[in-house]
Computed example of a mutant assay.
Amino acid sequence: MKLRIGVTGQAGFVGYHLYHTLALMDDIELVPFDRLFFSKAVLLENFVKKCDVIVHLAAMNRHDNEQVIYDTNVALVSKLITACDKENVSPHILFSSSSQEAKDNLYGKSKKEGKKQFMNWSKRTQGIFTSLTIPNVFGPFGKPNYNSVVATFCHKVAHNEKTTIINDGEIGLIYIMDLVDYFIKVIENKIETKEIGANSFELVIEPVIHIKVSNILSLLQRYKSDYIGNGVFPNLENPFEKALFNTFRCYVPQTHYPVKLTKHTDNRGSFVEIARTETSGQFSFSTTVPGITRGNHYHTRKAERFAVISGKALIQLRKIGTEEVLDYYLDGNEPAYVDMPIWYTHNIKNIGDKELVTLFWINEPYNPDDADTYFEKV
């Protein structure tokens, strides 16, 4: 029997990545959530009674009035508990708390109060409650000026906007997929947690890296110069730098593609450089007959480039969980490439009347035991 999991705030930054990672697991059934549920009690009650596990991520992080943040976050917890009581259900509830808990601000106090309410609920109902204290998180699709300084800098650097460092302190960071792994381990009871009350547990998650703000900005500016400016992939051996680069790539303007390649021609024929990298990887090429489509899959960590060198192609991309499709038309008479962001399903179709020749580069050689390739139609 599949474990039924609901994620409040599934459309948010952390919620998006957790929801769509859980969707890849065969032993889990996801219970869809919509923010409307918190404004209509009957919808929230219907949601909670379907769940074996609820990951409570819905929260307000920023507002001009801090009291609004506090009141909103506490109210969300209260509504969730009330719905569980109304339906007489006691799912395992995971709560995204914050290191701000210990600080004297209303956001931190809202997290502290939310934890207290859940602990009282678990003691009263015998339901299991686990609080995860989360450090600063970064990753693809974070909102600039909202989720993290990384999201803000990625957006500004990629869009040629001015960046300002107010305090060049050292910050602790965790990549979103590393954080998701913690949530999954708690759900599967594969990680040790600390008991903090009757049926209540806590996991304090430490940052994966501590780094100065200026060092983050320096790396992003290098990515802009090398990658956007010259199409060069950086070295992707360092886990943090690979995570930061994959994050940055998701802020590259859509209009950047397709990127025209330089074609050198003489009496022998022509030469086109497809990719220049500072990292390992796998180069391959394919031929595709007219009317055939390849791909319709996505990756969660791999960097990949499609370069059309002969024939006509339509490359399509769609971010997982959304409906907007990006169309890029390429012609081998003007060689060009499109890079595939992570969490975007993609394909390539021969739309010409001749054979299509495409060269592919990906930063990891294919491993059938860990392919990081998930099939979904664009």
Rank of each mutant, 00 (worst) to 15 (best):
I309C: 05
P341A: 15
I342W: 07
D339P: 00
E364R: 08
S286N: 08
K349I: 10
T358I: 11
A336Q: 01
G295C: 04
M340H: 00
I362V: 15
F306Q: 04
K349Y: 14
N333Y: 07
K354D: 15
Y298K: 02
E324V: 12
I342Y: 03
T345K: 03
G311Q: 01
I320F: 10
N347G: 08
H299P: 06
V325T: 07
S310N: 10
T288Y: 04
F285I: 12
E364K: 08
G352N: 03
D331T: 02
N363P: 03
P365Y: 01
T322A: 11
G311S: 10
Y328H: 10
M340V: 07
S310L: 10
N363I: 00
N367Y: 03
V357W: 14
D353C: 11
I309R: 05
T300E: 13
L314R: 09
V308H: 00
R305K: 10
V289N: 14
P341C: 14
I342C: 02
A336Y: 01
Y329E: 15
T322P: 11
N350S: 07
G291D: 08
D339R: 05
F283D: 01
L326Q: 15
G295H: 06
S280V: 05
Y328I: 02
P290S: 10
L330Q: 05
D339L: 02
K349T: 15
K349V: 11
T322R: 11
I292N: 11
D327W: 11
V338S: 05
Q282Y: 01
F283L: 14
P368D: 11
D331Q: 00
F306Y: 07
R294K: 13
I342K: 01
R294N: 09
K349R: 13
N333A: 12
T345S: 10
E324L: 13
R318L: 09
Y328C: 04
P290M: 06
I362D: 00
P341W: 15
N367L: 04
T293I: 01
I320D: 05
F285E: 12
N296T: 08
E334F: 12
P341Y: 14
I348D: 04
Q282K: 05
T293P: 02
G281A: 00
L330F: 05
N296M: 08
I362G: 01
P365A: 09
E334V: 12
R294F: 03
T345V: 09
G295W: 05
V357K: 12
V325S: 09
N333S: 14
Y328E: 08
I348K: 04
K349W: 13
G321W: 05
T322I: 13
S286R: 08
N350A: 03
L326S: 13
K312M: 10
P335A: 06
T300H: 08
A336I: 02
A336R: 02
L317G: 00
I351L: 06
D353M: 12
E355M: 12
Y329D: 15
L356G: 03
